Simulated assay, not measured.
Amino acid sequence: MNGLKSLNEEWKKWIKVCILKGVSTNQIASELFQRGWTDAAYELIEKKGEKLKRPRIDLNKNRIALNNKEVSITYTCHKPHVIVFDDFLSFEECSALIEDSQNKFKVSKVINDDDGSRVLSTNRTSQSVSYSKSPNRLVKTIEARIAELLNWPANHGEGLLVLRYEDGGEYKPHYDYFNTIKKGSDKIMQNGGQRVGTFLMFLSEVECGGATRFPKLNFEVRPKVGRAIYFSNVDLAGNVDNMTLHAGMPVIKGVKYLATLWIREEPYL
């Protein structure tokens, strides 16, 4: 790697000053990453022998060749870290997931930060099917593909969740990370730790509405079969990123099917 060598003298001097001041390696790397020096950020962490706080995706190519699939990167953002992929799932894979989930849907719930329980909420009007620890071969294939793309162990995933949003269905602006100030977060994080990333996959398209929107970025991703979105809920220092506020916009016409996998910092048992 030559990421650090590619930095100009001003940035090299800045790194030395930070190290002398006792700034942590991951915090320095986080700042480099947010400024677009991604290779330098990862190289610094590796050279110092520090642990990565979140998944790492190779951003040097526009197409990434995986074991049984090639995916396209169509959009990237460094702060917050958001990547949009096309062709992550095939039309046949999306159709098979939708078909398998039929007659299994239940009303979706959200986590209560105060006690860690799962409760109904008017903020989230969808139905869902959990494939956590499912023996379904297709689900296992998709989870393995995500793990390969993210360079993050598959057993850190909470398990695939398929969602259905009918007319008017939405998920109002929210965060996926756990608010460590809240009492319920301690209970939730005992298994797997923090949610360091989120991986969304569109299984269908709708005639109107249904985008995934990032209000603080004034940016949204429209549904397209096989398209996926990854965003990091924490920075390279492991600090939660409040720029990741996002929402599932109301479906105005049609039925939206979506699959989600939340990624934890530690194995999720």
Rank of each mutant, 00 (worst) to 15 (best):
Cys18Leu: 14
Glu207Asp: 14
Trp11Phe: 14
Ala96Trp: 09
Ser72Pro: 08
Ile28Trp: 02
Arg164Met: 13
Asp241Leu: 06
Phe33Gly: 08
Gln102Ser: 12
Tyr177Ser: 05
Leu245Glu: 13
Leu149Arg: 00
Tyr165Glu: 10
Met249Gln: 10
Leu203Glu: 06
His81Met: 05
Gln127Met: 12
Cys94Ser: 14
Gly22Val: 08
Phe33Ala: 14
Leu163Lys: 00
His174Met: 03
Gln27Gly: 01
Leu149Lys: 00
Ile142Leu: 02
Glu99Ala: 12
Ala144Glu: 15
Cys77Met: 09
Leu89Met: 10
Leu261Glu: 14
Pro173Glu: 09
Leu97Ser: 03
Ala41Gln: 00
Asn179Lys: 06
Ala154Gly: 04
Asp167Cys: 11
Cys94His: 00
Tyr131Trp: 06
Ala40Asn: 09
Ala41Leu: 02
Val71Leu: 10
Arg35Gln: 13
Ile146Gly: 05
Leu203His: 07
Asp100Asn: 11
Glu166His: 00
Val82Gly: 07
Gly168Tyr: 07
Phe219Pro: 02
Ser126Gln: 04
Gly209Ile: 01
Lys172Asn: 12
Arg137Met: 15
Glu50Phe: 07
Glu166Trp: 00
Asn26Tyr: 09
Val71Tyr: 13
Ser24Pro: 08
Lys16Asn: 15
Lys256Met: 02
Trp262Ser: 05
Phe214His: 03
Ser185Cys: 11
Ser108Pro: 04
Asp115Lys: 03
Asp176Cys: 03
Asn191Thr: 11
Val82Met: 08
Leu44Lys: 04
Lys182Asp: 13
Lys133Glu: 15
Cys94Gln: 04
Leu163Asn: 12
Tyr230Pro: 03
Phe214Ile: 00
Phe88Ser: 02
Arg213Val: 12
Gly254His: 08
Lys187Ser: 10
Leu32Arg: 03
Ala40Cys: 08
Ala247Cys: 09
Val221Tyr: 10
Lys253Thr: 12
Ile252Pro: 13
Gly157Pro: 04
Leu89Glu: 07
Gly159Arg: 01
Val225His: 05
Ser128Leu: 06
Asn191Ile: 13
Ser204Ile: 09
Trp11Cys: 07
Asn136Cys: 10
Asp58Pro: 08
Pro173Ala: 00
Tyr230Ala: 05
Val225Met: 10
Leu89Asn: 06
Arg145Ser: 15
Arg56Pro: 05
Pro80Trp: 11
Ile188Val: 11
Asp58Gly: 00
Gly197Val: 01
Asn239Arg: 04
Ile188Ala: 03
Leu200Lys: 03
Thr125Phe: 11
Trp262Tyr: 08
Glu158Pro: 02
Glu50Asp: 13
Ala96Arg: 02
Phe85Asn: 09
Thr198Glu: 11
Lys21Trp: 12
Gly209Cys: 06
Ser132Ala: 12
